[in-house]
Amino acid sequence: MTHTPSDPRQLLIVEDDEAFARTLKRSFERRGYAVEVARSPEEMNALLATFRPGYAVVDLKLGGASGLACVQTLRALDPAMRIVVLTGFASIATAVEAIKLGASYYLAKPSNTDDIEAAFERAEGNAETPLDARPSSIKTVEWEHIHRVLVETDFNISETARRLGMHRRTLARKLEKRQIR
């Protein structure tokens, strides 16, 4: 399926959860988008040989790969592309990295088509966003630190555990309690 780069209704979904990807695809097709789905960075790169989306939805964690690398590739392909990153657990570290690499917006799952489409339309930040006066808990600070190191190691669990000075199984248990996607 070949589309022109200027067609703004072309959408690429990079998501390894097949059921979720299928649901998003159908929902966006009902809204008039031409949609392609890739389940990995490799599938995404193969699709980009013939498909030029104006929009992309990228899962942060794609099996053992990071969706941040996909964001970087997509931004290099088309600086005007609207890219939304989805994740099962939002952390400040990955949100910052996603935006620095070119994502337009960062949403925590579960997000629906309305949330994603609204994020595509948000071009500017909102200075009126209320500040959270509640201090972060120790668990939140710990989780954000773990997630920051996960990003630095490209989601390599063994290397992350080594850098954090904890046993790999301990880290795996912590990650199971708070899913990252």
Rank of each mutant, 00 (worst) to 15 (best):
L62K: 05
A119R: 04
A56K: 02
V149F: 08
E142R: 12
D154N: 15
V71R: 08
I146E: 02
R75T: 14
V141W: 01
N156W: 06
S111V: 00
A118P: 02
H145L: 14
A123F: 12
A69R: 09
A65W: 08
E42I: 11
V149S: 07
F120P: 07
T153L: 02
L68D: 04
N156T: 02
C70H: 04
V71S: 04
N112W: 08
G125Y: 05
G63Q: 08
F28S: 00
A80F: 11
Q72F: 08
A49N: 11
G64K: 13
I83P: 03
S66D: 00
L150D: 01
A95E: 13
V71K: 06
K25N: 01
I83D: 03
F89H: 14
P130S: 07
E29I: 01
T153E: 13
P79H: 15
K100M: 11
V141L: 15
D59W: 05
S111E: 01
I157H: 07
P41Q: 05
E29H: 01
P41S: 10
I116S: 05
F120K: 04
L107S: 09
V151G: 03
S104L: 13
V84N: 08
E128C: 06
H145M: 13
H147K: 07
L47W: 07
E117G: 00
D59T: 04
C70N: 03
A56S: 13
A98S: 14
L47C: 09
E144Q: 13
E117Y: 00
Y55R: 15
R39D: 10
K61N: 01
V84A: 09
L150H: 02
L47P: 06
A76E: 12
R134C: 00
D132C: 12
F28R: 03
L47F: 05
L107D: 07
N45A: 15
A49R: 15
P53D: 09
T73F: 04
L101I: 10
T50M: 10
T94M: 12
K139F: 04
P135F: 08
A80P: 01
Q72E: 15
A69G: 10
A133M: 14
T129C: 05
N45Q: 15
L48K: 03
I157P: 00
A46E: 15
T113W: 05
